[in-house]
């Protein structure tokens, strides 16, 4: 790292007085990098090692090197594949739900609405509040006998969380409720950046509103919407908090929940480290795509 940090072209002559720019830069940047290496990279190297062992943190038995055995076992375990399938389904439902609701809200708000600022802020509240604590109260809302959802929708004693077929949708609905505001916020920014003269031109040409939407609005909002979608995909992939609190059904066992159970309830430390690494590689891949889009959006 030191090698990277030593080259610097002084762009002012202030280097002559006080600390040199080079020193200041290193002083400002290196502690952060070091902190992140010590508390993020180093632990990950450590768990890379444990992923090749049969280590269990609940016993004092020494760890035995077993090579790729954990990875082999995980990748051939059909239950793990089920966790991945559940997660993929969950991500698909919740992200598409968020895009529809969020973008729809943004389209509605992109007009002259009284008290628009206040309404927008109020609509953003769900995403700011604790997912764990608010998620918990959806248990109360979903309750088959006294929950308000069944009451207002007239669903009688509909089982949201106890029915294994429905529970995943119930968890995804909470996610949609929480994070649609995020898609809305980004879409609003995209919509407000569409030049007004394009709409005026379309109106002069007597373009249909459908045509205007698909030929003007959507293409111009697409880059920012894409950022929202990738970011939400990444986050939905990692969902833990409200899913873990709301449901203990095997049909809602997302990857993060399986990983948590494997590591902290079953104490299969070595195996869970290997699992964590598989997840890690997937997350890094999605992050890469995300950052690429971010930079592209910034460049505009």
């Amino acid at each position: 790292m030191a090698n990277v940090m030593t080259r610097l072209e002084p762009d002012t002559r202030a280097a002559a007085r006080g600390l040199s720019d080079l020193t200041i830069r290193n002083l400002f940047i290196i502690p952060t990098i070091a902190f992140l290496i010590i508390f993020n990279v180093f632990p990950l190297l450590y768990s890379l090692w444990t992923s090749f062992t049969d280590f269990r943190a609940s016993t004092t038995a020494p760890a035995n090197w077993i090579g790729l055995e954990n990875y082999r076992e995980l990748l051939s375990d059909e239950f793990i594949w089920r966790n991945f399938t559940i997660t993929a389904k969950y991500v698909l439902i919740s992200v598409s739900g968020q895009v529809v609701v969020g973008f729809g809200l943004a389209m509605l708000l992109n007009r002259q609405i009284p008290m628009k600022g206040l309404i927008t802020t109020l609509l953003l509240l769900p995403m700011m509040l604790s997912m764990a604590v608010v998620g918990l109260f959806w248990k109360l809302l979903y309750d088959p006998s006294f929950g308000i959802i069944n009451y207002f929708l007239g669903l009688g004693k509909f089982e949201w969380l106890a029915d294994p077929q429905v529970a995943l949708y119930a968890v995804a609905i909470v996610d949609i409720w929480m994070w649609s505001p995020f898609v809305m916020l980004l879409s609003l920014a995209g919509l407000s950046a569409v030049p007004k003269h394009l709409y005026e031109a379309a109106e002069i040409d007597r373009a249909s509103s459908l045509y205007t939407f698909f030929r003007i609005t959507l293409p111009l909002v697409a880059p920012i919407l894409m950022i929202a979608i990738i970011f939400r995909t990444m986050e939905a992939f990692k969902t833990f908090d409200h899913a873990y609190i709301l449901s203990s059904q095997p049909t809602t066992e997302l990857i993060a929940i399986r990983l948590y159970k494997m590591a902290f309830l079953e104490w299969q430390t070595g195996m869970s480290s290997a699992f964590a690494y598989i997840v890690l590689i997937m997350v890094v891949a999605i992050t890469n795509i995300y950052v690429k889009y971010l930079n592209r959006a910034k460049a505009r």
Partner: peptide, 17 residues
């Protein structure tokens, strides 16, 4: 940025130890 994108459970396993 990438340090922040990791799922908490992934970091928590080695950190716990």
């Amino acid at each position: 940025l990438s340090t922040r994108m990791l799922p908490p459970v992934v970091v928590a396993i080695p950190m716990f130890l």
